[in-house]
């Protein structure tokens, strides 16, 4: 992972100061905007080739909105998302079609991405038809190829989604993402809907595919152990902002931001003798409509200083590969 990052001078994905604000409206006939939900509020990161960036945080922190911005399912209110240096939200025509072949997604619930009335062969081929890459014979060949890559048996293509188990359906979703030779796959909670004994199979498959097909992943997950296993780098989000961003090993061994510490302390290790350094946060995540001033975390932070309620901390590199947005550092 380290060498691959060194080779690629320009990262595959560069997110520059992106915000996404949703207006909050009141009234049925005369709509008035009464506020803004700052789902994503000025975040920046990069994803290198063959690299996995894990995005963690609690519900409402903006991790799913971030993934939707990368997939062009949302337009940023400010900032840019660059793929190979080109703004993805400004793409049109052939360049846009090319973008759709290069960036794919796999979601939590495989049912939602499969048409129950289509044989899976046709669902997978659809991705190729839309993106006009190959002839009919070439399509079928490619379908067989990706089905094999995700470990499904020969002849699976002729069957319907309901004939498969949950784990197999997630393999099918992965196969249809792979069909158009993507470079980036956005994985939004790819294993959380699966049975515990199936998760390791799919996580190992994701790792193998990354190595073989030179894929980059944006992994959105709330399970911290899953992220540790798959991601090379991890970004922790809180109320629309990245509060800590580092090499995965570095952030798991030595979390710096008080929120990261609390988040990690709340994750329960599968060991009855593990030390219990409970850092139990009081209260809940505040509303993103009217987030607290200064550092968004200060009302819940056990180490809050006087300036934390006034001054926004900036994300600052503490070591070469560990950045944190906190006044304590």
């Amino acid at each position: 992972m380290l060498e691959s990052r060194a080779i690629a001078a320009e990262p595959l994905i560069r997110v520059e100061n992106v915000s996404k604000h949703f207006p909050v409206t009141r009234g049925l006939l005369v709509m008035r905007t009464t506020g803004q939900v700052k789902a994503v509020d000025g975040i920046s990161f990069t994803i290198g080739r063959q690299e996995t960036l894990g995005l963690v945080g609690e519900s409402g922190c903006g991790k799913t909105t971030t993934s939707r911005l990368l997939l062009r399912l949302e337009r940023p209110s400010a900032g840019r998302v660059l793929l190979d240096g080109r703004d993805v939200h400004a793409l049109t025509g052939a360049a846009l079609r090319e973008y759709h072949t290069r960036v794919q997604a796999v979601f939590q619930d495989p049912w939602s991405s499969l048409n129950p009335r289509l044989r899976i062969r046709d669902t997978i081929a659809e991705a190729l038809v839309v993106n006009r890459r190959v002839s009919k014979a070439g399509r079928l060949e490619r379908v067989e190829e990706v089905l094999h890559q995700v470990g499904l048996p020969l002849g699976a293509g002729g069957r319907y989604p309901h004939e498969f188990s949950g784990g197999q359906r997630q393999r099918i979703a992965l196969a249809s993402a792979l069909a158009s030779y993507p470079e980036l796959i956005v994985l939004d909670e790819p294993v959380s809907a699966l049975d515990v004994s199936i998760r390791a199979q799919i996580m190992n498959l994701l790792k193998d595919l990354q190595a073989r097909q030179k894929l980059s992943y944006l992994l959105v997950a709330h399970n911290l152990a899953t992220v540790r296993y798959i991601a090379h780098r991890t970004a922790v989000m809180y109320l629309g902002r990245i509060v800590e961003h580092a090499d995965t090993e570095s952030v798991y061994r030595n979390p710096l931001h008080p929120y990261t510490k609390a988040l990690f302390a709340a994750a329960l290790p599968a060991d009855p003798d593990a030390p219990r350094d409970d850092l139990i946060l009081s209260g809940e995540v505040p509303s993103p409509i009217d987030p607290p001033s200064g550092c968004h975390f200060h009302p819940r932070c056990p180490f809050a200083l006087e300036q934390c309620s006034r001054v926004d901390p900036v994300l600052r590199a503490i070591t070469s590969d560990h950045a944190v947005a906190c006044h304590l550092y």
Binding site: S197, A200, A225, R228, Y229
Partner: peptide
């Protein structure tokens, strides 16, 4: 099951 507290190269599935 992947562990939060340790890094593993490959999980037995």
């Amino acid at each position: 099951v992947p562990r939060m507290e340790a890094s593993v190269e490959r999980l037995p599935s």
